[in-house]
Amino acid sequence: MKKYDLRTLFFLTLCCDLGLLSKRLISPAANLITDALHIPGGIGTSFSLMFLVIASALTAQLGCAALMGAVQSGIALAIGMVGSMGALSVIGYVMPGIVIDGLMWQTRRLGVSEESAIVLANATASVCASMTANWIVFRLTGVILLLYVCVSVTSGALCGMLGAKIARRLRPVLPVRGERKNCGEQGGARE
C-alpha cells in the first residue's frame, strides 16, 4: 500500500472536516427543498460526500474514502453529531466511502474521464447513504422512497459536477499518485 505523505494527510483531514461541517452549513437551504417535497432529507449528504470524492480523486488511493468515512464517523460520534442513526451512523459514514473507493478504482481501470467518474461516484455514494439512512431510520416505501432516491441521485450528480471542477482546480497544487492518463482540462476518455 502506498503511503500518504504529510501534505496529503493534511488535505484528507481538511476534507473530512469540511465534509462534516458542510452538512450543517447547507442543511437550512437543503431543508427548504426537502420540506417542499415532503421528504426527510437527501441533499445535505450529497454535498458532504463531495469532499470525500474530491479527496479520493486527487489522492487516487484505494481505501482513501472509506478511511475518511471511518474518521468522520469517529469525529461525529465524539462530538455527538450522529442524528437519528445513533451508533449505527458509523455504517452511514463508511458505506458511501466504500462505494466511492470501489467506483473510483473501477472507473480508473476502465479509463473513464475524471469528471464522469466523480459525478458517478458522488451520485452513487449519495444513493448509498440515502438507502442506508432509509434502512436504519426512515423506512420509506413507494413514491416517497422513489423521490427520496431521485433527489439523492440528482443532488449527488450536481455536487459531483461541482466536485469535478474543484478537483481540476486543486490538481496543480496537490500531489497526485496514479493520475488518470487522459484527464486533461475536459477529461477525455482513454482511446
Binding site: 417535497l37 422513489l146 423521490l147 433527489v151 440528482t154 450528480a157 450536481l158 459536477m161
Partner: peptide, 20 residues
C-alpha cells in the same frame, strides 16, 4: 455527464410530481 444529470433531474421532477 450533462445529459445524465438532465435525465435524473427529469426523473426527479416526475417523482416530485407523483409525490405532491
Amino acid at each position: 455527464t450533462t445529459m445524465a444529470v438532465v435525465g435524473v433531474l427529469l426523473i426527479t421532477g416526475i417523482a416530485a410530481g407523483l409525490r405532491l
